[in-house]
Design a protein around this nucleic acid. Sequence first.
DNA 1: GTCTATAGAGTGATAGAC
DNA 2: GTCTATCACTCTATAGAC
Lengths: 215, 215
Amino acid sequence: MEQGGRTRGRYAKTAERRAAVARAALDIVLEKGHGALTTAEVASRAGMGETTLLYHFPSRDHVLVAAMELSDEEFRSQATAQLPAGAPLSEDWDLGPARLALGQDRTARLLLALEAEAPNPEHPAHEYLKRRNDGAVRALAELVRLRQREGRALPGLDPLGTARQILAAWTGLRAQWLIDPSFDFPQEVAQAYRALTGEAAMEAKNKIQDLITTV
Amino acid sequence: MEQGGRTRGRYAKTAERRAAVARAALDIVLEKGHGALTTAEVASRAGMGETTLLYHFPSRDHVLVAAMELSDEEFRSQATAQLPAGAPLSEDWDLGPARLALGQDRTARLLLALEAEAPNPEHPAHEYLKRRNDGAVRALAELVRLRQREGRALPGLDPLGTARQILAAWTGLRAQWLIDPSFDFPQEVAQAYRALTGEAAMEAKNKIQDLITTV
DNA sequence: GTCTATAGAGTGATAGAC
DNA sequence: GTCTATCACTCTATAGAC
């Protein structure tokens, strides 16, 4: 991170090493879950000694964050590949990622574990998740503003607050579902999204306006 | 647990020991956070050897769950003491606990950590949090039904689903707030609650009905 | 059934030599 | 950049006393 930019190529090995570690770590997480990840196995899979790994990543938690970052990148490329290129905020946006996320409970659990440690500012997950949440909230707020312009979301809503609430419902429902999958997760997320944006109220309002203009 | 009920009083010591451990564990959590809790320190504070502790609680995680359970009990007695006795689902219910919870970030973090491990059915937090979520959802669903009867929540809502969404928004917003306290947590929770129950829509609907009857 | 002592494996993390 | 100790902590025995 800090030394990535100087004399271009001299310290290229470090970048390679870090990438190899992230790759190996994510593989282990996907195979056995983050709880079963040991620094020893990551090191051996990435072709280095354990202490060498600890030189590049000061702790096991740093390795887990690197794995999560790699997972995010892969998820993004999958998701954008699946959606029409120019329309990241299309109709399918609401449900698409929710369905996609269903198959990935290993990474979902890793994310949950990082969220649990992120309140500690010393922890490597802190800055990472701050950025991550911030980005998600920003994107969702933009979506809310779009829906407001379309007349499908209540105009009085604070886009940022609503975005926070949508993200919260999403992650909270996922946490509940991981503990007890006794309900339809994507359907419940979609429901919460509709309620939080006031979509039903706007539909009613539009109907009333239609009625009035016909009178 | 299994042998707690037979011959009444002969094995009373076990209950005492377990209570002492829970007390010591919760104290440590409140003082230094759950990450700093070691079985050795819990044992010494509870006045027993480490292996004795491990006889009553098979693992560190079991101790943490016991601490969380004790915290829940204390929270409940505080909350019910603060609210009017006969009205657990009163007006203040919405905001009261949210404000109360603000000061307790140590236990909030412990809860978050347990939620992260609870997806694993082998983990002691699994059954505990299943019960806990179930109870919270049930209570919230009852509140939603009450508000529906009062005409303050949309009658078409599924009370159980709405309850899940409210709980999700609550825990999700708390997780966001713990990472980055850049917004008003209780206010955002109240906002989400109003939106998810459709309170604004019902207020509008009642106004319209008043208008119609006056015409 | 309850409690303690001891020993050791497995893991994460640190300091210091090469 | 790499590796060799070395340490702290959790957890699993085992063996036995009250």
